[in-house]
């Protein structure tokens, strides 16, 4: 075991870890917000929205994340330069980077899975509670905000923790579109130093550590949300 390279690559590793964490945070937070819209659309009565949302979830859950990422980056991304004026605009520095497409693909994918889970959770909220809310004279919007969604999120919370961990482990594929995440940093170190295992061991420790932190946060969260078992 030779870890003498750590000092000279510390900068690269820290930046890589930050990118991994940033991608995870963006995709989980934005993805969750989207998932709520998707779930509500699916349990709602307006059928065009219901079908649209169902189609979206089927498409994103039915294709490999890697292919989605490449469709965005190499497909969509390679047509962007042909839009007149875009290359000269202030948006180009963002749109030319793999990071944008990585965040986009991870977010849309996460939203599709969470949307499905949340839909299931909303369906399993006891009918009696919703009827009670209606008996109190709450409007449908108020029922959704006060009873239906909070109860559904509480039901989905343990699953949600697992999904965030899975999302973390999906992030290394972003290196295939030139994003220097933690795995990308490890790859570069492996190539530079010709060490096979040591860089991988180091990033393994990081991923396990982050997973541990995520599960801790969710355990705290679960305990803090009152529930009747």
């Amino acid at each position: 075991m030779d870890f003498s390279w750590v000092a000279s690559y510390a900068d690269l590793l820290v930046r890589g870890a930050a990118i991994t964490f940033l991608l995870l945070s963006i995709s989980v937070s934005v993805g969750f917000a989207l998932a709520i819209l998707l779930a509500v659309a699916q349990v709602g009565a307006f059928f065009p929205l219901r079908w649209l949302s169902r189609g979206y979830c089927t498409f994103f859950r039915g294709t490999p994340l890697l292919i989605q990422l490449w469709l965005f980056y190499y497909g969509l991304g390679s047509y962007l330069p042909f839009i007149p004026g875009l290359r000269a605009s202030f948006l180009w520095p963002i749109l030319r980077e793999g990071f944008f497409f990585a965040a986009l693909a991870l977010t849309l994918n996460f939203a599709a899975y969470q949307g499905e889970i949340l839909r299931g959770a909303m369906a399993s909220v006891p009918k009696g509670e919703l009827e009670a809310a209606r008996a109190f004279g709450m409007s449908p919007g108020k029922i959704l905000r006060r009873i239906w969604l909070p109860r559904a999120i509480r039901i989905a919370l343990p699953t949600f923790a697992g999904e965030v961990v899975l999302q973390l482990k999906a992030t290394p594929i972003v290196f295939s579109v030139t994003v220097m995440d933690l795995y990308g940093a490890a790859y570069k170190i492996r190539q530079d130093t010709l060490l096979v295992y040591e860089p991988l061991i180091l990033v393994t420790v990081f991923y396990v550590g982050l997973t541990f932190a995520i599960t801790q946060v969710f355990q705290k969260l679960e305990k803090s949300v009152p529930s009747r078992r």
Partner: peptide, 17 residues
């Protein structure tokens, strides 16, 4: 900008990145 292979860098050059 680092790429895993030369091929991928050429792809990105062609799309103006």
């Amino acid at each position: 900008k680092s790429y895993a292979t030369v091929d991928e860098s050429l792809q990105d050059l062609a799309s103006g990145r």
